[in-house]
Amino acid sequence: RLEAVLHEPIHLRTASGHLEAAEAGRARMAGPKPGSLDRLIGRLGTRLGVEAITRVQPADSHIPEKTWVTVAGAWSDPVTDWPPPTKLRPLRMWAPEPVMVPDAPRLPGVFRWRGRDHKVHSTRGPERIAPEWWLDDPAWRSGQRDYWDVITAEGQRLWLFYAHGASKSSGWFCQGAFA
């Protein structure tokens, strides 16, 4: 026994003939339609979960790691006019990792990072970035930072900074790598 407690009206389907089916096939083969990304997100979402499909969108902040936000791909539109960068930023960024050098605001000639010694070949900087004073961000409790674009003797181009220390201690950190 089956009882329909709630139902919606059924719309009539229009049967298409061979001519309409052939035109629809040609349109599919001609190229992706504007909604094809939405279809891809839907297909991937059924396998991975819709919340696993994300995209980044620009955000208004002078803090390097806050210049974008991650949003759900299924419920957001792609950004067509990403603002041009005002400053040169690394392609890959990560949480700041400590660099083993003496605690001084001068950039050292040799530093130890990720268990290896790196010799500085050339540098560009510093660029001073201050924390957003209206927010209490735990990652920025070390106060203002001086960022340096450092090229090592091995050819790695890293983004190091010196945290001047506010409520946390000062020191050198590596936060990114350029392409």
Rank of each mutant, 00 (worst) to 15 (best):
A72C: 09
V150H: 06
L2N: 11
G165H: 02
R112T: 14
P138W: 07
W82L: 08
G143K: 08
A95D: 03
F111A: 04
W172N: 02
I41T: 01
H62A: 11
K119S: 11
P105C: 13
T54Q: 08
W68M: 11
V150F: 10
R47Y: 02
A166T: 02
P58E: 06
H11V: 13
A30N: 02
V99W: 02
G115E: 05
R47A: 08
R43L: 12
A139I: 07
H164A: 10
F111T: 03
R114I: 02
R114H: 01
T123F: 11
L107Q: 05
L12Y: 00
F111K: 01
V56S: 12
R124H: 09
Q156W: 14
P96T: 11
A104W: 09
G35E: 12
H164R: 12
S61A: 10
T70R: 14
R106P: 00
P126R: 08
M29R: 10
L107H: 02
Q57W: 00
H11E: 13
A21Q: 12
D117M: 06
F161M: 14
G45S: 05
L37P: 00
W94C: 00
V71L: 06
R112F: 03
P96W: 03
G35Y: 13
R145C: 11
P138A: 13
V71C: 00
R39N: 07
G35T: 09
P32G: 11
P138C: 11
A166Q: 08
S61Y: 02
Q156R: 15
Q144F: 04
W159P: 02
W134M: 13
P34S: 12
A95H: 04
Y147W: 07
C174F: 02
S76V: 11
G155C: 13
P105N: 10
G125Q: 08
L6D: 09
V69A: 08
V101F: 08
P96G: 04
